[in-house]
Nucleic acid binder design. Sequence first.
DNA 1: CGCCATCATCGTCAATTAGCGGTGAAAATA
DNA 2: TATTTTCACCGCTAATTGACGATGATGGCG
Lengths: 105, 105
Amino acid sequence: MAECLRNLDELSFDLAAEKELAYYAKALAHPARIRLLTVLAAGGCLGSDLVEQLGLAQSTVSEHLRILREAGFVHAEVQHPRTCFSLKPEAVARARELLALMLEQ
Amino acid sequence: MAECLRNLDELSFDLAAEKELAYYAKALAHPARIRLLTVLAAGGCLGSDLVEQLGLAQSTVSEHLRILREAGFVHAEVQHPRTCFSLKPEAVARARELLALMLEQ
DNA sequence: CGCCATCATCGTCAATTAGCGGTGAAAATA
DNA sequence: TATTTTCACCGCTAATTGACGATGATGGCG
């Protein structure tokens, strides 16, 4: 059924894109972080509210937010003493685009 | 700029979808597994060829393939003594769909 | 039957991650 | 200036992951 014998010599890899997609995926690879993003998808949100929605310690939620921020999924706008976190839709779009470009057709 | 004060009481979560997306992401969260999928995206492939392309030990590649198989990204068709691995495009499509449904708009 | 090639699984070790409490910085407000 | 609230960061522990070599199972082939 599947075609298994072919020439692999001419295969070339986009190492940067591979790392980028893996990095996005790593940031998404935890249910609590998905939950965070779904809350943020409905609009910006204070950290204290997120802690309440998640049911985890403040320090844990802060760490998840840091990971999401580093990956580019979340924007943090400081309004002391609060911070307003929001979803960066372009990061989601980029992740979807990479999936399509690299793994479809 | 961002709207941070809103009513969160009416938020409901799809726990199953959150876990599903996180599980897909976890499977993708390693450059070696992305590399495997990109090779497979060009057609089915023998495990021994994948080992060569990856430059990792056979047991390591086998473990990555197991993770991808469990997540539904890869199909394994045994043709003793070989096995032909191939990409399951519907899993990629599903991952993209979940991203769109849960995190866009 | 014995050999060979291929792939999965096991045990092990090092590195990473998830979770928590505690601490500290920052600015609005009293 | 002292207080309060909010959030980031540190240090710690337990659990998970990634990588490897070794071993084992499987069926084709000599």
